[in-house]
Structure formats: structure tokens, C-alpha cells
Simulated scan of single mutants.
Amino acid sequence: MIARLPRAVRWATMLGIMLLSASAALGTQQPIEVRVSVAERQTAYRRMTYGARLRPRQTVNQRAPQSGLVDQITVQPGQVVARGDLLMSLRRNVPTDSFRPVPVQSFHDGVIASIAVYEGQEVRDGDTLLTIADTSSLTAELLVSDKDIDAIRVGAPVTAVDSQRDRTFSGRVTRSALIPDYATGLFSVEVSVNPGPGAFVGQFLRFSFRTDEISAILVAREHLEYRGGRYHLFVVENGRAVLRPVTLGAEYDSRVVIRDGLHEGERYVISAVRRLQDGASVTVRE
């Protein structure tokens, strides 16, 4: 009967039948099972790392309280001392002197960095006897390249790690040079480290800084769809997967900032049991 109709009518009739068949097929198709993630703001940052050794913030010279001879030295370089500890003793350089030796006690907590005298040596009042490294505050000098120096701010927190001994310390940037060492092209950055248990002078640490820290909606790059020359996400709306174009921002490791096209609280597809098409009926697997 269709064959007897005019050609234009035949084509319109056949097209209508095809559309009805496709619509019926879609109506009976089972929803595609998907897993989703909820868009939310996250904190992201980059990390840069430099290595350096710990050193004391200052060294203090312990001086002779009087003239005389070094009677006995009771410490050695590298030894840890506390305020009030006996370092050495002095006696008067008088053959008939019957006075007891004068004790020389530490004025600071720290480590014996060097000893400038020997037993039996004559010293004068005020001469340097030894040097103590003040370990109540430890620092490190980092040599930073010109590509990183602009990201470092005085007061910024720093994490310092000794991977060999599985130790982690906290600290802050206390100084950042404005001009480089012209011989090396590197900038000097001083970091102050909180001297917790396990920290010692000469210890090699890796210092990490957070840079370019942001708060934004981020998604894993693997969840993006590249179609028609643009990036998209499948967003679940009213039981259907809607292919929505998105505008990308900076990339942080495997995640990328979504500048536009996805809003907080919306659900986007992260996996599906089969390939999705725009508008496909979906069911969310919890």
C-alpha cells in the first residue's frame, strides 16, 4: 500500500516509522549503571624541594673568667652540654697557690663546636676557651634557583624530612635574599627548624615548600571526555547522563581545575559499565 503513495509521502512515512522504532528501542533500553563523584572545592598545591644541612643559628665563645693555667678539660668536641655543666677548670699560675681550681661552667645549652686551649696552657682573663654551638634553634641555608625564588615568602611554613632516619620536622622561612650569588646564580634562603627529637647539627634534610595553593573544583583528568575539540564531563541530571562542556584551568598532578561548566554539589560520572552517549538513561551505583 505504501508503494502506491507519492514518493514524497512514502519517504515521510518511512522516516516516521524509523523514528518510532528508534524511540521504542530507547524506551525499552535498560539504564546504564554508572558511578559518580560529587563536585566539591578542594585544596591543591604544588611542591618544590631543596636539600641542606642543619646548622646552629649562633655560636657562643666561652671565655676565661680569670687568668691562670688550664687545669682540666672535661668535655670534647661534639659533646652535648646544658647550661651549668662543667666544661673545664682553671688554677692560678702561682707555685705556692693553695686555692682550689676555678670551675668554668657552660652559659648555654648546645654542642661543643671546638676547644681552643689544652691542659696546662696559660690563659688570660677574657681569652676564648671553647666555642658552643647553640642548638636551641637550628637553621639551614637553601640555595634556590631563579625560577623558584618568587614563590618563596618569608614566614611560609616548611616541612623538613630526614628519609634515612624517618624523621620529619617543621619550620619557617626566616630570610630570603633579594639578589643572587652572581657566581652561581642561586638565591640564599634561610629556614628556621624546630629542633625536635632526632634533630642535630650537620643533619641532611629535604625541605619542601607549598606553592601555588588554591581552593577550587578539581577532577581527575581520566574522567574528562574529549569530543569535538573540547573537554566535557558527563553530569547526571534527572536520571540521564548529560554531556556538558567544561573549561579547564591549571593542572595539579593528575587533577585539573574546572573553571566553568561544573558546580559544587553536582554529580559527574567517573565510570560506566559501557560507553555513554549524551542523554543516555543511567542508574547510579552507590
Rank of each mutant, 00 (worst) to 15 (best):
A156L: 10
D146V: 12
Q121L: 10
V38Y: 00
R53D: 11
W11D: 15
R35E: 06
P65M: 00
S254Y: 08
R240H: 07
A183M: 08
L262S: 06
L276G: 00
R55W: 09
I32L: 08
R175Y: 09
V236E: 01
G279F: 01
R259M: 03
A24P: 00
R210E: 13
V75I: 14
R244M: 02
F204M: 10
T159E: 05
E119W: 11
R275M: 01
E190R: 11
L54R: 03
V191M: 00
D109N: 15
D125N: 14
N61T: 05
R165L: 14
S192P: 02
I2C: 03
Q164E: 15
V235W: 00
Q72P: 03
A44I: 12
G228E: 14
A250M: 12
A199Q: 00
R153M: 04
L87N: 05
L138D: 03
T135V: 07
G51K: 09
G68W: 03
R165K: 14
D127N: 09
A199I: 00
E251T: 12
G84M: 13
G51E: 12
P65D: 02
L86Y: 06
A3M: 06
I32W: 01
D212Q: 13
R259V: 06
A199P: 00
F207E: 01
G84Y: 11
W11E: 15
R244T: 11
Y182M: 14
L186S: 04
H232N: 08
E264V: 15
M48W: 10
V111C: 05
S145V: 12
Y50G: 09
G228L: 05
G239R: 00
Y226Q: 07
E266I: 15
L248H: 08
W11A: 15
S192N: 14
P195M: 06
R210Q: 15
V75A: 11
S67H: 10
R210I: 08
R124H: 09
R57D: 05
P31L: 09
R267H: 13
E225S: 14
L54H: 02
S192W: 04
A12H: 10
L138K: 01
S215I: 02
L26D: 03
A22F: 02
N194W: 05
A44F: 10
D150M: 01
I2M: 03
A116N: 12
S170H: 10
R91M: 09
Q29L: 15
A3V: 07
R35T: 12
L143N: 14
I217T: 04
R100S: 13
D253F: 11
D162Y: 02
S114Y: 00
V111M: 10
L224N: 09
